[in-house]
Design a protein around this nucleic acid. Structure first.
Length: 157
DNA sequence: GCCAACGTTGGC
DNA sequence: GCCAACGTTGGC
């Protein structure tokens, strides 16, 4: 039984649900988060086994594309030290790393639940994702919202 | 490509 | 510690 639930956004051009499915152990390191609130969720609140709604953003059909789970504790994001990486952070250092991430493991690729449909679902109206101006790439999901999304997807809880 | 909303930066 | 300027996000 997952202890908490999350929605994690990924640009499918970069890391789609299919990339996750094709990865070794169907697991990907969630590198590249450069927002303190999102980092803090990973570092302070996520636990192995937490439920994850895998969300495709910045694409033709944004929406929930699958279910995943948190597969590691938070650990150092190496891309912050890599000057050739788009996620390089010159202000970070080995002595005082700024950024951490968890690993995320596929549970199941689902049909797409489009953002458009989520916006029209009364039972999802409170989701952080749907609040005006919300841009956080990682947001908490309540148990009720989790169940409602799974119901919309036609998945058993 | 537009643009509104938001987070971060840095001068003061 | 304020706040204007800037960069980013992300749906449209």
């Amino acid at each position: 039984m997952p202890h908490q639930f999350w929605l994690m956004k990924s640009e499918p051009d970069e890391a789609s649900i299919d990339h996750l499915a094709a990865a070794p152990q169907q697991t990907l390191p969630w590198t590249g988060v450069r927002n303190y609130q999102a980092r803090n969720f990973m570092r302070d609140q996520m636990r192995i086994g937490d439920g994850v709604l895998f969300y495709h953003s910045s694409c033709a059909e944004p929406g929930v594309a699958g279910l995943a789970e948190v597969a590691s504790e938070a650990y150092t994001d190496e891309t912050q030290f890599d000057s050739t990486s788009p996620y390089f952070d010159p202000k970070s250092s080995r002595d005082a790393p700024r950024w951490q991430h968890v690993d995320v493991k596929l549970v199941k690729k689902t049909r797409l639940l489009p953002l458009k449909d989520m916006r029209h679902a009364p039972e999802l109206a409170g989701m952080r994702l749907l609040q005006p101006g919300s841009r956080l790439s990682i947001t908490p999901v309540t148990p009720d919202e989790w169940r409602a999304v799974l119901a919309r997807l036609g998945e058993a809880g």
